[in-house]
Amino acid sequence: MKVTAEKNDKVAQMTFASIYPHYVRKVEKKGRTKEELHQVISWLTGFDEGQLQDLIQEKATFETFFQKATLHPNAHLIKGVICGYRIEDIEFDLYRNVRYLDKLVDELAKGRAMEKILREEKK
């Protein structure tokens, strides 16, 4: 599937606060913790706990959320299909970043090891 400009704009206006509870529910239902979720979000975006809570409180849109984020240099290593879209083929940066986050949350919920989710370099 191909992401349209309209789809990208729609996601840009969604608030992170409206999706966050779904992320929490998804990972907790599968035996993972909110702390692990925050670790994954922090890895991808660079946000600490306080910044994350501020963005939730201010009901930041995904556009604002990712404008303020410092994407991890290994984020490009997140590959695969999420919601019918091959992540590495998504042209819109914002939409790709949202799908990166969705993919990491899915991997966490599926029980993947944290080192693999966080795409840590082998030493």
Rank of each mutant, 00 (worst) to 15 (best):
M1T: 13
M1G: 15
K2L: 11
V3N: 05
V3Y: 06
T4G: 07
T4R: 08
T4N: 02
K10S: 12
V11C: 04
A12H: 08
Q13K: 15
Q13A: 15
Q13V: 10
M14F: 14
T15L: 08
A17M: 03
I19R: 14
Y20F: 14
Y20N: 02
Y20M: 02
P21L: 11
V24F: 03
V24E: 07
V24C: 04
R25M: 13
R25I: 08
R25G: 14
K26Q: 13
G31F: 10
G31V: 10
R32P: 07
R32H: 12
T33N: 07
K34Q: 15
E35P: 02
E35K: 15
E36M: 09
E36Y: 06
L37Y: 06
Q39P: 00
V40G: 00
V40A: 06
W43Q: 03
W43N: 03
L44I: 05
L44V: 03
L44C: 01
G46Y: 02
G46V: 03
G50C: 00
Q53D: 10
Q53K: 14
D54N: 12
L55Q: 05
I56Q: 04
Q57V: 02
E58P: 00
E58S: 12
E58L: 09
K59M: 01
A60D: 04
A60P: 04
T61Q: 04
F62G: 02
E63Q: 14
E63A: 12
E63N: 11
T64H: 06
F65N: 01
F65H: 01
K68M: 04
A69H: 05
A69S: 12
H72W: 05
H72F: 05
P73E: 09
A75F: 07
A75N: 00
H76N: 13
H76L: 10
H76V: 10
H76R: 13
I78F: 04
K79V: 15
K79G: 03
G80T: 08
V81T: 14
Y85R: 10
Y85V: 02
R86F: 11
I87T: 07
I87R: 04
E88I: 03
E88A: 10
D89W: 08
D89F: 06
D89H: 11
I90M: 11
E91N: 11
F92A: 11
D93L: 09
D93I: 11
L94C: 08
Y95M: 09
R96N: 03
N97K: 14
R99E: 14
R99L: 13
R99A: 09
Y100L: 02
L101I: 01
D102I: 01
D102E: 12
K103G: 03
K103Q: 14
K103A: 09
L104G: 06
L104C: 12
V105L: 06
V105E: 00
V105R: 00
D106T: 13
E107P: 00
E107Y: 11
L108C: 05
L108E: 04
A109I: 06
G111T: 08
G111W: 10
R112K: 15
A113L: 13
A113P: 05
M114K: 11
E115A: 12
E115M: 09
K116I: 05
K116Y: 12
I117E: 03
L118E: 07
L118F: 05
R119S: 06
R119C: 09
E121W: 10
K122G: 14
K123D: 13
K123A: 15
